[in-house]
Every structure is written in C-alpha cells, then in structure tokens.
Design a binder for these strands. Sequence first.
DNA 1: GCGACAG
DNA 2: ATCTTGTCGC
Length: 297
Amino acid sequence: MELKNKLIAQDADLPFTMEWDGVPDDVAEAVADADVALAASWPLPTNDGKAVMPEPEAMAAAGTVIRGRAIRIGAADDIGLPESVNRIAGVDISFVKGDAVRAAASLVVLSYPALDVVYTDIWPVELDQPYIPGFLAFREVGFFVEAFERLRATAPELVPDVVLVDGNGVLHRRGFGLASHLGVLIDVPTIGIGKSFYHVDGVSQEDIVATSREVLTAAGDALLVVGESGRVWGAAFRASESRKALYVSSGHRVGLLSALRIVRACARYRIPEPVRQADLLSRDYVRDVMLGDQASA
DNA sequence: GCGACAG
DNA sequence: ATCTTGTCGC
C-alpha cells in the first residue's frame, strides 16, 4: 500500500516532454487536471510535493468536457516522439497449457524509431501466487523486477526510456495495476496496455465498447475512460487499423496523453510492437524449449 | 446475496 | 492465460 505514495502520474518526471498539436486545449487541460488529482489522491504527499487536489466541482467539469468524446492522437504517419526517446521495452509471460505454475517470462527492448529488437531476456519461471482479478501484479511483477536487475547489471546502456506492460496501469479497481506496480519498483516510466478491463468508478468495459464503436472511426482515435467522479482512468485506443480497441493507461511517471502518443508510435499491429515481441518470444520459448523438455523427459 | 472478474 | 482451421484481404 505504501507503494502508492510514490506514484506520480504526471509528465513532470518523464525524462522528455511532448508537445500537443491535435488535442483540443480543453481536453488536454481536463486530462492534466485528472492526472494531478490522481497523484494527489493517495494518503501521503507525492514525491514533488506539488500536486494539488482539484475541487470535486472541477473534476466533474473535466468529466463533462471529455466524456463520450473521441480525440485524435497525431496524424497517421508522423507520430514523432522526442529525440530523447531511444528505447522502448515490453514485458510478458506465457503459460504452459493446463499448467498454472510453469511459464516463461520475457523482457525485450526495442530501438526507437526503428523498432528493432536490441535486447532480449527469456527464462522459465514458476508462479507461486494464484491469479486473482485485481491482484495480477502480486503474481507477475517479481519476475520483471529481476529481469531489470539483470539488464542493469549486464547492459545498463540498454535500459529503456519507457516500458509497455501487458496489463493495466491506473485503469484498475484500486488505481494501481501491474504496470504501475512495476514502474514504481524499477523506477522507470511505464504504460499499461490492456486487452480488457473491468468496471471502475461506475464505468464498465461494455459502456466503453458501445461508445467506441461510434466514435473511434480511424487509427489514432482515442476515447477517454471517464468515471462517474469525473476522474480520467485511461483510454480505449485504436492504435492501429484494427477495429478492436486497446485499453491504455498511465503506469508510472507518464501522463495519459503522452502514453497514447508513445503507444501510437509503436503500432504496427493491434498489439504495440514491444509487447508483441515479448509475447512472441515467451510463446516460442514455451513451445520450443519447455514443451520440448517435457517430451524428451 | 448476486454478478463481475486485467493475465 | 490457453483451447484452435480456415479464411478474408493487402
């Protein structure tokens, strides 16, 4: 629980800054207010001590501005990120069919903007915690923390500028999903990439899917997930041509608008390239190495 | 009590 | 998460 106190959901701590062209000012301000509210909503003061909790009326007003409204994240072919963004990582775990314990975890680092794989780490793991919805981090985060310790020890020059995590960030029942948990523990900016989510603050995935079908008309369109309180939890995002949206949310030290732009920049297929490469790597490992062992044993 | 339920 | 062939399309 005390981990929460370290979370800063603002861009202030991001090692780079972004400029916003295609986003209406009122939307950008509403999201920024929501991020400040998020950082200030924990019991103890935040790291920078600057976060201020907006009045409830301000939160509600922000919600009114952006609820049900799509925004476009950059143009189709020039989603340039700041020059200080050079590496983007992805993490994932794949399981052995019908086995709740044996799995393979992976960490990959891609170069940006080429999106070439420049580092891979893949190893077998045994899960010692059950999967309980809402507590995914307690089952998986430890493996990724170890992977980052290895990375820092063997190739510190390849530590990424930001990590895309296969799981939600603050788009979470307690506002603290796997991506946020990992970000705090490794002290690297993280972004949550979910293929689904469940009801938070009075909003269900079903509600968002219904509206998404109407307003997400092109790749790069995002629909912010605004709770009944007015708080912005994340976004349904058509990062690629695929009709099915992803759910993007701040993990740690990245604001939502920046997170969306970063995900857009990694969109070759529906699943952002760093997460996709991590997924391919761990799947191949389970199939070619772990099942191979089983067959020959 | 009932339903819902990231990976 | 995983179980699973073909098939529509660039």
